[in-house]
Simulated scan of single mutants.
Amino acid sequence: MRATAVSVRKSEFSRGNRLANDFAYLDASHDCAATLKELTALSPLMAPDGIILGDDWQINPAHQHHGVFRAVQDYTRHEPWQIVAAGPGGQWALARR
């Protein structure tokens, strides 16, 4: 299994990483646009059967982290990823279609 630990706030974390990761945990931005950029930057770093996990799944539009929910929903509509888990605990997971 290959995983790379990163701790950054911007999508530039993808520079220099050329190995496919089996999983990634995204808990950086809570803004919709920034989360979309982070997912876009993360996708090519993932193994074909890799999983992207994340936090702060909030379906309530009034919640401060609702941008994560919106970004993940939008991303999976336009990219070859699907939501395989999401729930009231705030966690979510994506896998390639």
Rank of each mutant, 00 (worst) to 15 (best):
V8P: 03
A34C: 11
E38T: 04
H30S: 07
T4G: 14
G54S: 05
H63Q: 08
W57V: 06
T40I: 07
P88M: 13
H30A: 02
I83T: 05
L19V: 13
A86K: 06
L26F: 10
A62R: 08
H66W: 04
P61C: 10
V84Y: 06
K10T: 15
D56K: 05
A34W: 10
I51E: 07
L53W: 06
R70F: 04
G87E: 01
V6Y: 12
P44I: 06
P88S: 15
N21A: 14
L53V: 11
V68R: 00
D49I: 04
G54T: 00
D74R: 12
A95E: 14
G50K: 01
A33I: 15
N17M: 09
A5T: 01
V84P: 01
S7K: 06
I51T: 14
I52C: 03
W92A: 00
Y25S: 07
R18F: 03
S43Y: 05
Y75C: 01
F69C: 11
H63W: 11
D27R: 03
C32R: 04
Q91P: 02
D49E: 05
S7G: 10
V6S: 12
P88Q: 15
G54A: 03
V6I: 12
A62E: 11
D49Y: 05
A5S: 06
A3I: 12
R97T: 10
R2T: 13
P44G: 10
E12V: 10
Q73H: 14
A20G: 14
A33Q: 15
A34M: 08
R97N: 12
V72A: 00
R77N: 13
M46H: 06
H65R: 15
W92G: 00
D22T: 04
E79W: 02
H65Y: 15
D49F: 09
A71E: 06
G50S: 07
A85I: 02
G90C: 09
A93P: 08
A86V: 01
R97V: 07
A33E: 14
Y75R: 01
V72W: 00
T35H: 04
G90V: 06
P88I: 15
N60G: 02
E79I: 00
E12W: 11
P61Y: 05
D27Q: 02
K37E: 12
S7R: 05
N17A: 09
S43N: 09
A62F: 04
D22Y: 13
A95H: 13
L26N: 01
G90F: 05
S14C: 09
W92D: 03
S11W: 01
A62C: 02
R15V: 06
S43V: 11
E79F: 01
N60M: 07
S11I: 04
N17G: 03
I52Y: 00
N21Q: 15
S11T: 06
R77D: 13
W57C: 10
S11V: 04
G16H: 05
I59A: 15
Q82R: 14
A85S: 09
A62N: 05
